[in-house]
Computed example of a mutant assay.
Amino acid sequence: MLDIRTELTTNPKEKPAVDELGFGHYFTDHMFIVEYTEGKGWHDAKITQYQPIPMYPSSMVFHYGQSVFEGLKAYKTVDGEVLLFRPDRNFARLNKSNERLVIPAIDEEFALEALKQLVSIDRDWVPNALGTSLYIRPFIIATEANLGVHPSKNYKFIIIMSPSGSYYKGGINPVKIMVEQQFVRAVKGGTGEAKTGGNYASALKGQEIAEKEGYAQTLWLDGKENKYVEEVGSMNIFFKINGTVITPELNGSILAGITRDSMIQVLKSKNVPVEERRISINEIVEASHNGTLEEVFGTGTAAVISPVGELKYLDEKLIINDGKIGEVSQMLYDTLTGIQNGTIEDTFGWTIKL
């Protein structure tokens, strides 16, 4: 395992007020960075001051999009302890993305150790107000200065961190979602199951269209038949139909969300029927018409759960649970956030205490 050199800042920043945090606006004093060179492997690991990255304009990430990233959080308990939530799964998924983008694998144990050291150094940046957290963004970019179309020979693996405010300041309010008909986010065989920036760039047009029509996000259908539900915005999606919770099966174009997996495990532990399978938009419309569509919610790192109160498909607006959060959605949110902030016993072994 590589040694990690530490270069602490001599000019720590003033921390923002909790009510000013928002998401992704402020960054902690330090970051982790390690270099990759073909023939040498990963080397020169260090924790250093958060700062700009010197790169050539010809660096391959700018031209061919060879990049991957992850998103996870650290939480502060009422006792002042800092918890990480399933970080091992994030680094395992990062390596799956690496494989798809032809990026060298990282040592997952080393990455976790680097993360622990970084969070420990900047632990005072973990906010302790209800609903707040320290968002953690590991990412890898291709840095070879070359315009030839081939996998880069040089990379940087970096971890930066940002204190984040409460996602739901005024309580959890269901959002309105529009089913996208013209564009697709990803297709089987593409990069949909990798966490790479291009997937998010391709989704921006749909999001723009939805927002112009007064909707919070886009519900994406499959790229082949334009029939089966895949993701909502940058989140996985769940439907509760006639007592059973259904989420689209992982098919090569859907990201294997860690929050998604956690929700499935919680549902099973609570004896709530849950299925991973293909589900068509027509099945959802029919369930709405016959009164069996009981809840809809998205899941992801940032929001944990985002309940859906309305779906617009073609010219029809489907109202879900009278536009209110459902019982299962609330239970899942309370359970997962309780585990994350230490108020509920972690019987799954998901948290790591620093």
Rank of each mutant, 00 (worst) to 15 (best):
A74C: 05
K156F: 13
A142P: 06
R89P: 00
M161N: 05
Y64F: 11
P54D: 09
T196N: 07
L314S: 08
R277T: 04
Y228R: 06
V78D: 15
L318F: 02
A111Y: 02
R260S: 01
G233M: 04
G192F: 01
H25S: 07
Q330F: 00
T292F: 04
K212E: 12
G298K: 11
A194L: 06
G214I: 08
F85P: 08
S152V: 02
P12A: 14
Q117R: 15
W220E: 03
L219D: 03
L219R: 07
E70R: 07
T77S: 10
L332C: 02
F139W: 11
F183S: 06
T335N: 13
V179W: 02
A92D: 14
K40F: 00
T337C: 02
D44A: 12
K15Y: 09
E310S: 03
I158E: 01
I319R: 13
N146Y: 11
E38T: 08
K312W: 12
V229F: 03
F183T: 09
N271Q: 13
N199D: 09
E327F: 04
I160N: 08
E249V: 04
G342H: 05
I237V: 14
W42H: 09
D29Q: 12
N236A: 01
Y50R: 10
A302T: 08
V18N: 11
K156M: 13
F85C: 10
A303T: 12
G39V: 06
H289C: 00
I254G: 03
N242D: 15
Y26T: 13
N199Y: 11
P57F: 10
E81R: 13
Y168C: 05
E38S: 12
V149C: 01
L94C: 02
F348H: 13
V179L: 05
L8S: 03
S152Q: 10
T301V: 00
E249S: 11
L8T: 05
I136D: 00
T347R: 15
V285F: 04
F110W: 11
G206L: 03
E276G: 01
A287S: 15
I172R: 02
K312I: 08
P163M: 12
L204Y: 11
R137Q: 15
F238R: 04
I352L: 12
K40Q: 04
N321W: 01
R137Y: 10
I140M: 13
G131R: 12
Y56N: 15
S280M: 03
I159W: 13
K195A: 04
G24A: 11
T9N: 09
N290C: 06
L255G: 03
D19K: 12
V119H: 07
F85S: 11
Y200W: 14
K153A: 13
T301D: 00
E211W: 07
K212R: 15
R185F: 00
G323N: 06
K40G: 00
S59P: 00
T244P: 00
T132G: 08
L21Q: 14
N271P: 00
T347A: 05
Q66W: 06
Q265S: 10
E276R: 07
S67T: 14
N321D: 10
F157V: 02
T337P: 03
N341M: 08
Q340A: 02
E230P: 04
Y36F: 14
Y215Q: 11
F348C: 13
I320N: 03
S234F: 07
L72Q: 07
A92S: 09
M263A: 02
G39D: 01
I344G: 07
G252V: 01
V78S: 15
A194F: 05
E108Q: 15
L221D: 09
P104L: 07
I246E: 10
L314E: 15
Y333M: 03
